[in-house]
Design a protein around this nucleic acid. Structure first.
Lengths: 329, 329
DNA sequence: TTGTATGCGTTATCAG
DNA sequence: CTGATAACGCATACAA
């Protein structure tokens, strides 16, 4: 393995000089800079990230904290898009990212989680899909020990930024579209789980719409579960004109239930996952660009690590209609 | 951050002694071992993995090399299951795993990839979904620089093991089940992509069956693509009695095409992904336990890193029929 | 502008 | 069985 020592020897300079060149220090003459870079290229030297992060208190690595939920197809798809966006952007920003799955830290307390991340040389963390139940993560955010970006949860402080779409607005818009297209008066709304932050925001959206339009609104807790949505639809859809769902998975469950019940009600979802295309019926949904969201999250983390303050960042969304023809490949 | 030094001081022993206790060295008295462990627990000390991997020439870290394929739902699901299995087993084996996505090393040559992994302190790599096109990975395997386990590709040498189900047998069995259930004589087989290793093995399976049963076999290259499968089915299904597919995704494409053509032909798939349950029709398929496969891969890598030789490991599969009722949650 | 020396947290070697 | 001490590869304060 070619190390910085080899480069130094070969270039006839000191190790520290090589280090300075590599890290773009100002006080290096152009001639030695070139001399060193030539050797670096020739030897194909790549700095040892492990050693660097040990030695330096600087930049540090970034962790993507991902929930591994094997029960639903949808979360796999979303997680993968998040990862893809983050990895891509990290490469551009020259940040060293690692992915950490919540199952790895499930049974740890804050101190343990902190030491775990520190033991990995991590300075910044992106949290995807935080719920109010995740006490440990909340403490982690409060501790200020790491720079953090929380996707889809309104956590903001000195060292923490939040990144998400405008959930309230999106829910308002997609429901409005569906409802006006079908002239509905009575709305069945299947909400997400109590512990999710987006649940409340989306609920506000539908409430605002129903107040404005003077619609009758029935809210049921669908818990982001396809099965639960199916049951609720079976039970309550008949007395309503449409089913507005806080997630695509619930929309799928609702739609399949309606088909089995042999009645028609317009259904709309939320997220824009590919699975929607497989259901056979077209449905309105909010399309979130998860790749983009994750890229923005990384930009934001980069900003925080440069010492800036935490803030709230909103990413745009679109309204779409998912069809099988669009997703097949 | 509490370090090994703090533990040593607190326990009144030398740093090296603490290290020995932590790494289960033989020559440590039971009394000091206990004394040290007490302090470790009390202080909540977690060894710094970064420093450890810098210092040690030993075990080292493990990388999971994952293909990020955003075009298909199916691969997301499979990747996530692989990751889940690996992460879980790694925790049990006390191995430090990191996930690396192929997009990160796409434009590198062997030397660069090697330095990249070395710079991450990686000693062992698990490769998921290798194709014959991945020249760089092949060179990596040949180099013997890392201990490697290849999932779903028959690569075996001194430092490389292969882990997979018996693809030939599985394809034989699922096709046999479907064909005998429906008394078929003419079989349309939609094969995987040319570059995939499993493609050839599965093809052997169906060929063996058709020879034994004296069935007429038409093989088409479906390229693991749902769309391609749809097109091929539209074109060739009418003249055949059934459609045997080398992947679930193709089976879904074929089934949807058949529905649109308004003709019935039994279809069977391969993999056992959840998406199968969403298609509306029940289909036979081979269920691979991707979590289990990944666990086995990690066990195998652990074995290699202990100096054992590479070998071929086969994981059992099952035949199932996927229904919506089974996958909804 | 360049080089020297020290430390990051750990493991490994070798005396004691 | 235990404890100094030298690496590991790199960054950086400080000296030259």
């Amino acid at each position: 393995m070619v190390s910085i020592k080899d480069v130094a020897k070969e270039a006839g300079v000191a190790i520290s000089t090589v280090s300075k060149v590599l890290n773009n220090y100002p006080n290096v003459s152009e001639s030695t800079r070139k001399k060193v870079m030539d050797v670096v290229d020739r030897l194909g030297f790549v700095p040892n990230a492990v050693a660097a992060s040990l030695s330096s208190k600087r930049i540090g690595r970034v962790a993507l904290l991902i929930k591994l939920n094997l029960n639903t197809q949808a979360s796999d798809e979303i997680s993968m898009q998040y990862i893809s966006g983050a990895v891509h952007r990290a490469k551009e920003l020259q940040l060293d990212v690692i992915t950490v799955f919540t199952s790895m830290i499930d049974d740890m307390n804050v101190e343990e989680v902190t030491s775990y991340f520190e033991s990995q040389g991590i300075k910044g963390i992106i949290v995807y899909g935080l719920t109010t139940k995740d006490k440990v993560i909340h403490k982690l955010i409060g501790s200020g020990r790491f720079k953090m970006v929380v996707v889809d949860a309104p956590m903001v402080n000195e060292t923490t930024s939040s990144v998400s779409i405008d959930n309230k607005k999106a829910q308002y818009e997609i429901a409005k579209k569906t409802i006006t297209e079908n002239k509905c008066r009575k709305v069945l709304y299947l909400a997400g789980e109590d512990f999710g932050y987006v649940t409340g925001e989306r609920l506000e959206g539908i409430k605002k719409l129903c107040e404005e339009k003077k619609l009758k609104l029935s809210v049921r807790n669908g818990n982001f579960s396809e099965l639960r949505a199916r049951q609720l639809t079976m039970r309550y859809a008949k007395n309503n004109d449409c089913v507005v769902c806080a997630s695509d998975l619930m929309a799928i469950g609702a739609m399949k239930a309606l088909i089995d019940m042999d009645i028609f009600r317009p259904v709309c979802g939320f997220d824009g996952i590919i699975l929607m295309g497989y259901v056979g019926k077209q449905m309105n949904t909010v399309k979130q660009d998860f790749v983009k969201i994750s890229e923005v999250a990384l930009d934001e983390l980069n900003r925080l690590m440069k010492g800036k303050e935490g803030r709230k960042v909103t990413v745009p969304h679109t309204l779409v209609r998912m069809r099988y023809e669009d997703i097949i490949s």
